[in-house]
């Protein structure tokens, strides 16, 4: 099993974000801030409720994540921005701002049809047709919405890619 990257969806800059371990790969840690753009965001909560993501003690928090990362062969903490939901043109600047505030190394995961291409709103005049028009996307997770299991599969794919590259 490829090991050792600490993945942190969204941002350490924002208070209220919580860190989780991926149950399928305990060496994989993620930090999630629920941007809540649309219904896909519920699937993150669903993944937590199903035990696919296990919350790391708040007291350990970011410091422990960094320690975990330093103890691995990869060393770097890759931060993940998880974009789940419809990106309206009105909200697009906020997503761009969240992305620009993340420190390198970072990776963006597009979760669900709306973030991937616009999805059901592909013909709407007020919806951005895919978040990849604004920021580079590392992994696209299909679904409307994707299952919580698909979120985990997507996170593992990001890890595999970072190990490969």
């Amino acid at each position: 099993m490829a090991s050792g990257n600490t993945l942190m969806p969204v941002t350490a800059l924002v208070s209220g974000a919580r860190a989780y371990r991926v149950a399928a790969d305990p060496t994989l840690c993620v930090q999630i801030l629920d941007l809540g753009l649309a219904c896909c965001a519920l699937e993150v909560g669903s993944a937590i409720a199903a035990g696919l993501l296990v919350e790391i003690e708040q007291s350990l928090g970011i410091g422990e994540l960094a320690t975990v990362a330093e103890g691995t062969s990869q060393g770097a903490v890759t931060t993940i921005l998880l974009i789940s939901g419809t990106i309206t043109d009105a909200l697009a600047p906020a997503v761009l701002r969240a992305w620009s505030q993340l420190s390198e190394p970072k990776a963006a995961v597009s979760f669900g049809a709306c973030a991937n291409t616009g999805g059901p709103y592909w013909d709407a005049p007020t919806v951005t047709k895919g978040i990849d028009q604004l920021i580079p996307v590392r992994v696209y997770v299909p679904g409307c919405p994707p299952r919580p299991e698909a979120l985990i599969a997507g996170l593992l794919k990001v890890r595999d890619e970072i190990v490969v590259t």
Binding site: T88, D89, A90, W122, D123, A124, P125, T126, K129
Partner: peptide
């Protein structure tokens, strides 16, 4: 949701969806 009020209101039946 609209970035400006230029153009036809999107939910009128006479407005076409360019996409």
């Amino acid at each position: 949701l609209r970035r400006s009020m230029i153009g036809r209101p999107p939910l009128l039946k006479s407005s076409v969806l360019a996409a």
